[in-house]
Nucleic acid binder design. Structure first.
Lengths: 189, 189
DNA sequence: GTCTATAAATGGATAGAC
DNA sequence: GTCTATCCATTTATAGAC
């Protein structure tokens, strides 16, 4: 029943807002109202918005590392691991047309402070590496079929995944499901 | 030596800014400085920012319709038509990490005024329809190979295309070229 | 750690002269 | 069609009391 650190509460809300409207479009006033504390209090925890953004990226990094380690250690077919990843996207779009936070940051990369750009690049690399490893192992076991390097296939599949989410925010969940089904047919399972 | 309509000048600059930072992140002050006229003058042409955004969408619609008609009427293989489309993305990323304007608007859809959301949806449909028709014709002629409905394949390929651009803004042009090469291998040409 | 109060800058927008 | 001048709300941020 612990409400957790204030800092974590702020980060959790910022996470929701990034997924909903992106980094540039939420303010300390938004956080203040929804948390029931003043803007000044939030500045106490994160003096500059950039500090909040960087901390948020760091929290994404930790969460992703844990999630990927767990997924790779677990038993199960390669495709089912990728599918579990894709289900997160499905849930985001279904939840008031939210977006993948990394995709949201990519879209605003030209307005992001430098420390966030660097972090974003590493976050993308984490996700791309995870996919490449799953794909390589899946092809080795004959579970998946694709041409070229696993890294290239990872880039293609993640690009399609994020792109499909972006479309689905405008055109509805159905778009995401149909497009991911088409991707599944492509990878040959 | 005609400087063209002021209105068109404003729209052309707004287009550049949307591709660079998105709709929410540029201001009348940005336009004012770069055009050398005051904010009030811009408000004369577009009273509300929303009017400017909607007019910009309308200009996209016209440009796209003309481009698609021309591409479909022209001779040449299906893949080469798609490839010409993809080259626009390549040029955007190479030009200071610009983004596809439709993708930029998709990313900010939850902050867009309603008239822009509706227009965005129709713009996406224009592009999806174009791709679906090219793909259907290409498969009929045996130039392209894919499973399922042309509409589903169009959604997949455009999702991958837009997603690859978004990644490339962070990771460099190379990412885009490699990912599109992987897509070409996938569609079997 | 949270508050009140406030500052300085910016963003969208309008009135009215030229 | 463009300008000056101005308005009001918002955003980021700080100082200092409790």
């Amino acid at each position: 029943m612990d409400m957790g650190d204030r800092k974590d509460e702020i980060l959790a809300l910022a996470d929701q807002l990034v997924k909903s409207v992106g980094y540039g479009a939420f303010s300390y006033a938004d956080l203040s109202e929804k948390l029931g504390i003043t803007k000044a209090s939030i500045h106490h925890h994160f003096p500059h918005k950039e500090d909040l953004g960087a901390a948020l990226c760091d929290s994404y990094a930790e969460r992703m590392k844990r999630g990927f380690e767990k997924a790779e250690a677990a038993p199960g077919a390669a495709w089912s691991k990728l599918e579990r990843h894709f289900e997160q996207g499905s849930a985001l779009v279904a939840d008031h047309a939210k977006n993948c936070p990394l995709a949201a940051l990519q879209a605003q990369v030209n307005t992001l402070p430098e420390p966030m750009k660097e972090r974003l690049k590493r976050l993308d690399e984490l996700e791309l590496g995870f996919f490449a490893r799953i794909l390589a192992a899946g092809r080795d076991k004959g579970e998946l079929s694709f041409r070229g390097a696993p890294e290239a296939q990872a880039a293609l599949m993640l690009s399609a995944y994020k792109g499909a989410m972006a479309f689905a925010r405008v055109h509805g969940c159905r778009f995401f499901k149909d497009t991911m089904a088409q991707m599944k047919a492509m990878v040959g399972t």
